[in-house]
Simulated scan of single mutants.
Amino acid sequence: MILTQEQEMIRDSLRDFAQERLAPFAGEWDRNHTFPADALRELGELGALGMVVPEQWGGAGMDYMSLVLVIEEIAAG
């Protein structure tokens, strides 16, 4: 698969975040059926929420491949 530089940057950024901020706690969150608001807030700050929503409506206006890359990295974490 050939990614654009922007897509690679998004993937790498979310991979780092997931490995540092999600993976160490994922087992505990699964056992407790929780996902902390702080982690969700951080995902929003990284631009992982509203990625494909047009900019005119407050989103990032990005492509679906970028969204797929973000979802993959979050799931891996």
Rank of each mutant, 00 (worst) to 15 (best):
L46W: 01
L67T: 07
G77L: 08
A18W: 09
L3H: 10
I74R: 09
I2K: 14
A23H: 08
E72Y: 11
G59T: 00
A76M: 12
E20S: 12
P54Y: 07
I71Y: 14
Q19V: 12
E42K: 00
G77F: 06
D38R: 09
H33L: 12
A18Q: 05
Q5A: 10
N32M: 11
R41P: 00
L49R: 04
T4W: 03
D63G: 09
Q7K: 09
D16F: 01
P24F: 05
P24E: 06
G58N: 06
P36N: 00
E45V: 02
A23F: 09
E8Y: 08
A39K: 03
A39Q: 02
I74V: 15
Q56T: 10
E45M: 00
D30F: 06
G77H: 04
S13D: 14
D16Y: 00
L14P: 03
A60I: 04
V53P: 04
R11S: 11
F35R: 00
L3D: 12
L3N: 08
L46Y: 03
Q7P: 06
R11P: 07
L67V: 07
F35N: 01
Q56S: 13
M51D: 02
N32V: 08
E55G: 05
Q7Y: 08
E8W: 05
R31G: 08
A76K: 13
I10F: 08
G27C: 09
E8R: 15
M62P: 00
E28I: 09
Q7G: 04
D12I: 01
E73C: 07
Q56D: 12
R41Q: 04
G27M: 10
V70I: 08
L14E: 11
W29L: 14
A18R: 04
F35E: 00
A37M: 07
Q5K: 07
P54H: 06
F17Q: 03
D30L: 15
Q5V: 12
L14F: 15
F25E: 12
I74A: 13
A60T: 10
Q5S: 11
S66F: 03
V68G: 10
L22E: 14
L46H: 01
G27Y: 12
D38T: 07
G61M: 04
Y64K: 13
D38E: 08
A23M: 12
N32K: 15
G59C: 03
Q56L: 13
V70A: 02
M62C: 01
